[in-house]
Each structure stands twice: as structure tokens, then as C-alpha cells.
Design a protein around this nucleic acid. Sequence first.
DNA 1: CGGCTATTTGAATGGCATCAAATTGGGTGG
DNA 2: CCACCCAATTTGATGCCATTCAAATAGCCG
Lengths: 244, 244
Amino acid sequence: MTDIETTPLFRKLSAFVSLSEAEVTVLKELRQRRRTFTAGRDLIHQGQSDQDIYLLDSGWVCSYKILPDGLRQIVDFQIPGDFLGLRSALLQTSDHSVEPITDIEVSEVFVADLLGAFARTPRLATAVLWAASRDEAMVVEHLVNIGRRDADVRTAHFLLELGARLALVGLGSKEGFACPLTQYHLGDVLGLSAVHVNRVLRRLREGGMLTVHKGQVTFDNYDRLIAFAEFDPTYLDQERPFLK
Amino acid sequence: MTDIETTPLFRKLSAFVSLSEAEVTVLKELRQRRRTFTAGRDLIHQGQSDQDIYLLDSGWVCSYKILPDGLRQIVDFQIPGDFLGLRSALLQTSDHSVEPITDIEVSEVFVADLLGAFARTPRLATAVLWAASRDEAMVVEHLVNIGRRDADVRTAHFLLELGARLALVGLGSKEGFACPLTQYHLGDVLGLSAVHVNRVLRRLREGGMLTVHKGQVTFDNYDRLIAFAEFDPTYLDQERPFLK
DNA sequence: CGGCTATTTGAATGGCATCAAATTGGGTGG
DNA sequence: CCACCCAATTTGATGCCATTCAAATAGCCG
């Protein structure tokens, strides 16, 4: 296993709380078996109970819900350093499914171990609560996006936000980012049909704002794009650890 | 102050973890000044930083975001026992505003006290993490509702879910519940115009499913309604404490 | 009773979905 | 290396759901 201080989870939690030697050790011991999953095969099924928690080491996954009529809504994408199934474990039953978009590597974490770690190192519990709050803030922004913005602004805003998240872990910049999502994925996350996503992307491209092509999102004019999308670029910033 | 064991927060956390005598004492000591706010005046402003946390004792509030063009999206309603501003405090700046819908009573909780309580009684931290997960699950369900259901089903589903939440704290039943929301509130929470909400409510009424009148939501035919709304009535159930 | 807010209804517009079909491109096996 | 296949992308045509604008009615409070 690589040195923990370079892992995405450590980097993420460090943004909130300066972890002590002992806390890092606890964090390290949480990780059990390393596992890999292939793209497209669900890791967690809606309705499943008592499944384990995973920590995403590499690759992309999405959490989604399926409605009775087969429509799908993607709630969020997870990138390295994110927990998979933490909420499901706490609530004892999964309210959503989780599907790998690319092949992924995860570390298994046992629920009992995690709760034990919280008991022994409370600052870790607070740090995980912080991370959960950050996830919730992203879902909330997503909700507003779907509820109140039209398709063009919504799409631009979503891609900017995804780029900002990826930039935080070194996987993107103002130029753009590598993106394995299809137009079907984009439709399901944006609450649009894939056909309409295609038209939206064409308008954004012809407006000189962004291009999506061959697994690459390119911001052609970053400043015009953030103005158009009403995007707040400071949104995900976390400049200083909160808990000393 | 009333006996803590009858407070909504205690009832809620007890659904997840059996609290010890010592933990109850800590919970009791968290509550500082009791304050009241009048309907319509924001308690927390979008963009504000370093504000305190409140615990809602009575009344209804909503959390919302305002877009640059003035459109509003209500993210969630809070009812007694819910924290206000917990996420904002952890993230150090508020990504949303909070407005009382009715006159409300809150207890002030200092951030430092709460973090201190987590350090001394880790089970409390886990319980609050559980409560936060439950809140996130509700936001996720709301997201799916807006993203993928048409206006009629969306509205029916939302009112059923609100009724279920209220039933958990003794404020509603299969018959219906008292509801201070206007059609503007419903529009802003459902991502619809108030005018269209009116038409939707008429269709639901004429379909014999539910009636909204004079601050009262009445489920005229509960079974037909849950079938129509694709509502899972077990959704918020929490039958047994998870942490012994 | 007057004034305000919330509700209700109508008519016209438009954004997005749906259905259908053509085209592109990557991957695979012969 | 080419032929083929399948998935993803692209474009057109049509219809509907929800918005917007407008105005009337109902209900509540001072």
C-alpha cells in the first residue's frame, strides 16, 4: 500500500483537521482488503442492507437511483478519496446503487472498525462529519442546479463544478479535464434526455465556451463560461484547517 | 427548560444510539440561550461565515438558495429536533439561507461546545453523523424527485414524504397534517411555478387523492396516493437503534 | 370597509421529451 | 488490414408539459 500521506482521503481530511501521528495510524489500519471492480457492474444495490464501506482509490463511480418506470437519476459522481456506502452503512440500508464508470480500485473498510475508530479518535469522527457535510453541500448545489436553471446553464455549471472538484485532487485545471462520461451519463445526472444533452453541448461549443470530445472536456473560454453559468469558483475552496 | 428526554432531538438521536446518562447530560449542557425569531426574517444568510448553530425547538423553517436572477430553490424544510447551520459551521461559510416560515423557538449551540462534546463523548459524534446522513438521504430523494418525476407525481411524493417525517415526531398521520406552506413555498421547493402548483393541486384534488386547504393537507385516499406517487412508506423507518 | 396576500383560472409561448433515423468511431475477429 | 458490429453521437420532426403574462376571485387583518 502506498504511503498514506499521499492518499486522496488523507489529503481531503487534512483540509479540515491536522491529523496526529496516532490518528494517521488509525486511518491506515482501517483499510482492509484491496479490491478491484470492472466498469458497469454495480458495487452496491439499491435496497441492499448491511453491506460494507469502500474507500475509492482510483477510477470514477456514480451513485444513482432507479425509478419504477426505469428512469434513472444520478445523484453524484465519486472520485478518489471519497467513501462509498458510508451513508448506507449508517442508515443500515442502501437508498441508492453505486456503479463504477471506469474500472476502479477500492479498499474495504469494515463498519465496526470505522465506528471503533471514531470512539478511540473522536477528531477523526469530526473530520468524517466534515467530509459528509461537504458531500451534502455538493448534492444541494446539484439540487438547485436541476430545480432552477435551464438546460444550458445547468450543463455548464455542472461541468465547471466537476472540473473544480477534480482540480482539488490534481486531476483538472482551468483548461479542462479528462472525463469518461457519456452523454447518457450527463443526461441522467442533469435530469435531461441524452438527445437534449447533445443539443446543449452543441450550443455551448458554438458559443465558444466548452468542447466535449473523445473523453476530454475543454474549457474554451473559462471566464465567459463562469459568467454564463453563474459559477462561484471559490465554492469548494478550503484554505485553512478548521480544527487545529 | 423542559426535560430533555421529551425533546425532538433526543427522540431522533435515540433512534440510532442508546444514549447513556453522561451523554444525555452533555446534550443538555449544549443548549445555551433560548431565542425566538419571527416568520419571514432570515436567521442565516447565504455567504455569512462563522455563525452559530441553532437547534430548532418549535416551528417550521426552510433552507434555500437564491440565484443571481432572483429565482429561489428551497432545499429542505426543517422541523423540531433538526439542527440549523450545522453544515455551515463545519464548512465555515454558509452556502444557503435559512428563513423561518412560522414564528420559531431555537436553542443556541456554540460550535466550540459541540466539537468539545464530540471529543468527550464520541458516540454523540457518531449519532450526529447518523442524523446528518439521514438529512442527506432526504435531500437525495428530493433531488431524484425534481430530476425525474413529472409535476403531479413530484408534488404527491413530496407531500407524502413531508407527512411521513412529521408523523415520526407526532405531528402528522395517514389522514394528513397541518401545513403552513403557501403555494409559493411549494413551487420553490418543487422547482415549479406557483401557478402550476395550483393546477397540480387541483388535479390531485379532483383525482380524489389529496386536498390542500386552509393550512391543512388532507390525504383523501392514502393508498391510491402512495401508488400514484411511487412512494415507499418504509423509507424513513428506523425500527431499532444501531449502536447499542 | 379597504388593502394586502394567496389562490384560481385563461391564453399563448417555449423548452424539453419522444420518436425516428443517419452517421461516426472504436473494438474485434477473420 | 479490412469487414463488421455495436455503442455513442448527431440531427430532424412533432407534441406536450410547464412557464409566463394577465386578470379575476377569495380570504384575512386592521
